[in-house]
């Protein structure tokens, strides 16, 4: 069972992502911002990171950048949740090492479909 770290400062979005993925059979842990996520990612190995971009303390792009520097997260898929207007953010995210993005708003089915793609 693949493990996923879901990072979002918005509780409702975080719950939605986490419950959706749990219902699809993934092992999901939640983090409330980049700092929290970075600590959790170091405490155990996740197979995939799904993170919001705009968050307090540490934003999603910085989180991805920092995680990529860890040897055990070098090739792990990291997806960012972004709004449709965020073409610039997408590029910024890619430069930081993001694998891809999920465009908000999305529904649970789309989320699962994308995660299945990435995790195989």
């Amino acid at each position: 069972m693949a493990s996923i770290l879901a990072v979002d400062d918005s509780a409702s979005m975080r719950k939605m992502v986490s419950l959706t993925l749990k219902s699809a059979g993934y092992d999901v842990e939640e983090a409330v911002d980049g700092v929290d996520a970075f600590a959790k990612a170091q405490s155990r190995q996740f197979d995939c990171i799904v993170t919001d971009v705009n968050m307090p303390n540490k934003d999603g792009i910085t989180l991805i950048k920092d995680l990529r520097l860890l040897s055990n997260y070098k090739f792990i898929p990291m997806l960012m949740l972004t709004t449709e207007s965020g073409a610039e953010k997408k590029q910024e995210g890619k430069a930081a090492g993001a694998t891809g993005w999920i465009v908000k708003p999305f529904n649970p089915d789309q989320l699962i479909k994308i995660l299945k793609k990435v995790l195989g």
Binding site: D9, S10, S12, M13, M16, D52, N54, L81, T83, K104, P105, F106, N107
Partner: peptide
């Protein structure tokens, strides 16, 4: 931003 993201979803 959060309100927008959530309300869309």
């Amino acid at each position: 931003h959060s309100i927008k993201g959530g309300s869309g979803t």
